[in-house]
Simulated scan of single mutants.
Amino acid sequence: MTGRPPAPRCVANARMYSPAPGAAAAWKELFAWLARESRIDLDVIDHAFPLALSDLWARKDLGAAFMCGFPFMLAGARPRPVAAPVPCGALYGGKPVYATRLIVGAKTRFQSLEDTFGGRLGYTVPDSHSGYNALRHHLLPYFRQHGAKLYRQSVGPLTTPRRVIEALLAGDIDVGPLDSYALDLMLRHDPALASQIRVVATTDLAPIPFLVAAADCPDEIITRLRATLLSFAAAPACAPLGDQLCLDAFAPVDVAVYDLILRWDADARAAGYARPC
């Protein structure tokens, strides 16, 4: 019997956007749909905290996993872009973008970001855009105005959005950064959270984390995965998943727009503000 050899099995992971069990389950359903429609075998793996995301992104069998634009742009050997999510909601304007929400506890006295100055600032990891780079970019004008550090303590690495929430509610930090799309998913699957936190500021928009495959993933696999993901918005069977994942569509990845992230990093470093504090 002749024909093309079967495509190799690949792994898939949505850890970055699985901040609640319901979201994690929905991503597994999406990856199952993606495997069926693309005819690419995808094994969904957990790779949960405290395992390092860098190890996930370095896997030779990676087919679809979310990667932040900051480590992608800094990487010497970059994975291959597959597609970027387009979250639903007015903030995103139908584009593959996101922001950082700066949150405080709902029962605290803080009504504005400035009210938190002098307190304890949480962050995720230094190579995170939403949890570090965008946070620092938003605070940079205040740093320039004050000419000194804004907080008495920077607390981290907290690593994940869920751990930022936990630190905030435990009183370990006064304010912390959350990827806006991750927060949307948290609120969708844990609506009680809305009464426990308050957003005091939102950063400028930036290009969103996107799905990547291994650097040497065959072209055919990339093409089939990308084409299938780009059909998500028009697939009637995916409407319930769109609701569960606060997701309108997937879009092609324009790597050039991620230069914005490097510019924000360079601006902060040039101002002597390498660490958000």
Score class of each variant (00 low, 15 high):
Gln153Glu: 15
Ala192Leu: 15
Tyr142Asn: 11
Arg163Ile: 04
Gln145Met: 10
Ala148Pro: 00
Val199Asp: 09
Pro207Met: 04
Thr159Lys: 08
Pro157Gly: 11
Asp172Pro: 06
Ile197Gln: 10
Ser195Met: 06
Thr203His: 08
Leu139Val: 10
Gln196Glu: 15
Arg144Gly: 09
Pro161Asn: 09
Leu169Thr: 00
Met186Leu: 15
Tyr151Glu: 13
Val175Ala: 08
Leu193Arg: 02
Gln153Trp: 10
Val155Ile: 15
Leu139Gln: 07
Leu169Asp: 07
Gly176Ser: 05
Pro161Leu: 07
Gln145Val: 00
Ala167Phe: 01
Ala182Gln: 03
Arg163Phe: 07
Ala206Gly: 03
His138Gln: 12
Val212Gly: 00
Asp190Arg: 12
Ser154Phe: 13
Arg188Ala: 15
Glu166Thr: 14
Pro177Leu: 07
Gly176His: 05
Val200Thr: 10
Ser180Gly: 04
Leu193Trp: 12
Asp179Cys: 04
Arg136Gln: 03
Leu187Ile: 08
Ser154Thr: 15
Pro161Asp: 09
Pro157Met: 11
Leu168Ile: 03
Asp172Phe: 13
Ile165Asp: 06
Thr160Ile: 04
Tyr181Asn: 02
Val164Cys: 15
Ala201Glu: 12
Phe210Thr: 01
His138Met: 14
Thr160Ala: 05
Ser180Glu: 10
Tyr181Gln: 06
Ala194Phe: 04
Thr159His: 13
His189Asp: 06
Asp179Asn: 10
Val164Ala: 11
Ala213Cys: 00
Val199Trp: 00
Asp174Phe: 01
Ala167Met: 02
Ile197Cys: 05
Leu140Ile: 13
Arg188Glu: 15
Pro209Asp: 04
Val164Glu: 13
Leu178Met: 01
Tyr151Asn: 11
Thr202Phe: 03
Val200Leu: 08
Leu205Phe: 07
Arg188Val: 12
Leu187His: 00
Asp190Thr: 12
Thr202Arg: 05
Leu158Tyr: 05
Leu183His: 06
Ile173Thr: 11
Gln196Val: 08
Arg163Thr: 06
Val199Tyr: 03
Ala148Glu: 11
Glu166Val: 12
Thr160Gly: 03
Ala170Tyr: 09
Arg198Asn: 04
Ile197Thr: 02
Thr159Asn: 08
Pro209Gln: 06
Arg136Ser: 07
Gln196Met: 14
Ala148Trp: 00
Asp184Met: 04
Tyr151Leu: 10
Val212Phe: 01
Pro191Asn: 02
Pro207Gln: 08
Ala182Phe: 00
Ala194Val: 13
Arg198Leu: 01
Pro191Glu: 01
Tyr181Leu: 01
